[in-house]
């Protein structure tokens, strides 16, 4: 038992949590911004897939990870723009539009991979390419915790750090900039915001595009950091889970970070328990159950407060 516990709770476990949390944290922040502006972006999953595919494909073809990542982000923002035009200009239902974006993201990436990879290969085989890890050897020099700290955070991917920084970026944006105040106002009361001269549609456009950018970062990380190639539906529902994590975190950036880390801790537990004699479905179920319970508690708390 002690072996299990020390095997689980170690510096490598912390490193795994951070690694797993990145593709959840970034789309969760995307969801947070969109919810704050009153235009919940259901299409995160599809946007992530498109970014992951574009990033890995362009990066692989040019053998340049940064150009690939930029292409992935551009594709993500463009996809978010489709959703924004659909909802804000053409008055289409936001939820159905998001569902359509998810179907589109999954289908377009598979179809393009099939077509580019030669008819029956069923995919593209490009030389793998990923964004670099940030090596921080100086952490080793620290007394006592140096070695542990280095194992935990010394070799995380660039995007993991960008993800963590984005939390503070989003917090700054939402609570320190006039634009953030406008965004929250539009989300809370559209008419009131409009009456004081805030451009509702423009603000929502910005919120949706920004959420596309953040989800795109998460998608690029999936195919160029977490793994180093694209495979069909590789986001595996993270875009949907990301819709719940802000709720779990009480709709604040820091709460979202905490919720994403908690969720990832369970997910990392799953891979670690894999070597022990536990039916694989049980730990796999934990994140979904945790989300469901959190959703219930959140709703209950809100109802009790009302």
């Amino acid at each position: 038992m002690e072996g299990i516990l020390s095997g689980i709770f170690s510096a490598t476990y912390l490193a795994a949590i951070l690694r797993i949390s990145t593709p959840l944290l970034l789309p969760s922040l995307a969801a947070l911004i969109s919810v704050k502006a009153g235009v919940i972006n259901i299409g995160l999953e599809g946007i992530m897939l498109i970014a992951a595919f574009t990033g890995a494909t362009v990066g692989g073809l040019l053998q340049n990870a940064f150009v690939g990542a930029l292409a992935g982000l551009a594709a993500a923002v463009l996809t978010a723009l489709v959703l924004a035009v659909f909802h804000l200009n053409l008055r289409g239902d936001l939820i159905l539009g998001g569902i359509a974006i998810n179907i589109l993201g999954s289908a377009v990436t598979v179809a393009l991979g099939y077509q580019l990879g030669g008819a029956r290969a069923g995919g593209l085989s490009l030389p793998p390419i990923s964004l670099p890890d940030l090596n921080l050897p100086f952490l080793r020099e620290l007394p006592l915790i140096g070695e542990t700290l280095h194992t935990a955070i010394g070799r995380q991917n660039l995007l993991t750090w960008i993800g963590l920084l984005s939390v503070f970026g989003v917090a700054f944006l939402l609570y320190r900039l006039p634009f953030g105040a406008h965004l929250r106002a539009v989300g809370e009361n559209e008419q009131a915001a409009a009456s004081v001269g805030i451009g509702v549609r423009r603000t929502r456009y910005a919120a949706l595009l920004l959420s596309g950018l953040l989800a795109g970062l998460g998608g690029v990380y999936m195919s160029m950091g977490y793994l180093n190639s694209f495979s069909r539906d590789m986001t595996a529902g993270r875009g949907y889970i990301a819709l719940v994590i802000p709720a779990l975190g009480g709709y604040t950036p820091l709460g979202t970070l905490a919720a994403a880390l908690l969720f990832s801790a369970f997910a990392a537990l799953e891979t670690r328990l894999g070597s022990f004699d536990v039916p694989s479905q049980l730990p796999q179920m934990i994140p979904y159950l945790a989300t469901l319970i959190a959703l219930t508690l959140y709703a209950w708390r809100r109802r009790a407060a009302a």
Binding site: L90, R91, G92, L96, A100, I103, V110, Q115, A119, R120
Partner: peptide
């Protein structure tokens, strides 16, 4: 015809977008 069957899912997404975009109709 060795064309990816995913084309149909793209069509599916297009149907949702085109059909629910009320603005498209009023345009």
């Amino acid at each position: 015809a060795a064309v990816s069957l995913e084309i149909v899912r793209i069509i599916q997404a297009l149907i949702i977008l085109l059909f629910t975009a009320e603005g498209l109709l009023s345009l």
